[in-house]
């Protein structure tokens, strides 16, 4: 029988700090069956669009559906790969260019599973989770971001 995992909170208000990421890594020192971690950090890019520069992205989400999607994606990823643990955090609200908006962290006894799992996870999150991003330019005008 597969273990039922409780949905874990994913959304964080504002940027994800380096300190938060560091603490998250440190917490794994007691889990000594782990031999490999892999981390993906999504960072807000200062894209230049028609002469204007993106200074921040304001994230919103259909939170109920996003949380259940995150839960489904976690479960599917645990089934697909041999992972010891998995953490996903995504920002809501304003994240400035250069700051981190997505933190995905997977751990396994061996490296092959973490390499494959992280790519699968990040691609699936981008494709399936109802999160919306408003790119704010330096002159306060904006456009809506669409994942490519």
């Amino acid at each position: 029988m597969t273990k039922e995992r409780k949905p874990k909170p994913v959304f964080i208000e504002g940027a994800i700090s380096a300190e938060f990421i560091g603490n998250s890594i440190a917490k794994h020192q007691s889990k000594t069956t782990i031999g490999a971690h892999d981390i993906f950090l999504g960072q807000v890019r200062a894209d230049q669009i028609e002469g204007k520069t993106v200074k921040a992205i304001e994230y919103t989400a259909y939170e109920d559906m996003a949380n259940s999607k995150f839960h489904d994606i976690r479960e599917a990823t645990f089934k697909k790969f041999n992972l010891t643990c998995m953490h996903i955090y995504h920002s809501l609200g304003t994240v400035k260019a250069g700051e981190i908006c997505l933190f995905v962290f997977v751990s396994s006894p061996r490296r092959v599973d973490v390499f494959n799992a992280i790519e699968y996870l990040v691609n699936t999150i981008k494709e399936q989770v109802p999160i919306f991003g408003k790119e704010i330019f330096e002159d306060q005008s904006h456009q809506w971001k669409v994942n490519s």
Partner: peptide
């Protein structure tokens, strides 16, 4: 919280319209 297609029957009191996603 499930995507429906044009021929799906509307049976729920809450319907949500979602533009393209931009997470990550």
């Amino acid at each position: 919280q499930t995507f429906i297609s044009n021929d799906s029957i509307i049976s729920n009191a809450e319907i949500v319209l979602l533009p393209p996603f931009a997470g990550g």
